[in-house]
Simulated assay, not measured.
Amino acid sequence: MTHRWLHLRLAAPLMAFGGVTIDHVGVTREFPSASALVGLLGNALGWQRHQGAEHQALQDRLVFAALSVLPAGAAPWVVTDNQNAKLEKNDRGWTTSGKPEGRAGATYDSPHRRRRDYLADHETRVVLRLAAGQGPSLDDLAQALDRPARPLFIGRKPCLPSGPVFQGWTQAETAHQALQSLNLAGRALWPDEGQAHPRALRLDIPDTRNWVSGLHGGTRLVWQGELA
């Protein structure tokens, strides 16, 4: 069965596809996770963080594949930002919840440390469709990406896209074929749709989120390989 796929271009001087975070280290993947795309689409639609059921329903319907537009054999350029800030007892910082957050505890001698990895001068193409279910249609997503309710960012708030995210449509039976229809070369990631790919690696990756609890939500089977 042939499906219609939404074509996205994610490109920026700096962007991040966050992986599993431990302590203060915020890593980046090479490819966007399912939860990252849901966050991007939810932001374009104007959804709020507390709308967990809507985000979860969208993630459950999402079928996508991604391609790093890179020369053969090349690896993404990852840069690391080390942040050190000394927070005193009375210092306050604003958060995404809209409320100031303070420092707890009695010791203030040590700085607050954060490490964040970014993909530099990177370009990723994404093809996606939605399985049947309740919620926005594929046309709703295209319209929201073309005229987003809020400014879009790719992974982290400083990571503004360098051009339009919505790039049009393509037709294909599978996510892998939809990527091939773009006629671009690079390393790719696509879902396991029941077909064997002898030259690709089959992986079980942790990239979904439980949007109601806000915690990691499990893994999914994917293939990773090169598109010529």
Rank of each mutant, 00 (worst) to 15 (best):
T124S: 04
R103Y: 04
E88S: 08
G39M: 00
L130K: 14
V79T: 15
A53V: 06
G105Y: 06
G93N: 05
A132G: 14
L67Q: 12
P71R: 13
S110N: 04
R115F: 01
K99A: 07
P71T: 01
G73V: 07
H122K: 02
L87Y: 02
L119A: 09
F64S: 12
G39R: 06
G52L: 06
V27K: 12
R115C: 09
D109Q: 12
G98L: 07
L41A: 13
T21M: 14
R49P: 02
H112I: 00
V78D: 06
V38N: 13
H122G: 04
V78L: 14
A44K: 14
A72W: 03
A131S: 15
R129M: 10
L70R: 10
E54S: 11
D121S: 14
R29M: 01
G105M: 02
E101M: 06
A53S: 07
A44P: 10
G39K: 03
P100G: 04
V126P: 10
F31T: 05
T80D: 07
V20W: 12
I22F: 10
K99Q: 11
S33Q: 08
E123G: 02
A36S: 13
N90C: 00
S35M: 09
A106G: 01
Q59M: 09
A44D: 07
S68T: 07
A74S: 15
G98H: 12
G42L: 00
K89W: 02
F31L: 07
P76Y: 13
K86N: 07
E54F: 07
A106L: 06
W47P: 09
V126A: 11
G19C: 08
N84K: 08
P32K: 12
A106S: 09
S35D: 06
H24N: 12
N84R: 15
L87H: 08
K86S: 06
W77M: 06
L128W: 13
V38F: 03
A34M: 01
V127F: 11
G105P: 04
H122C: 03
L128P: 06
A75C: 05
A74W: 12
L45N: 12
L67G: 11
H55Y: 14
G52M: 04
T28P: 02
V27A: 15
S110M: 11
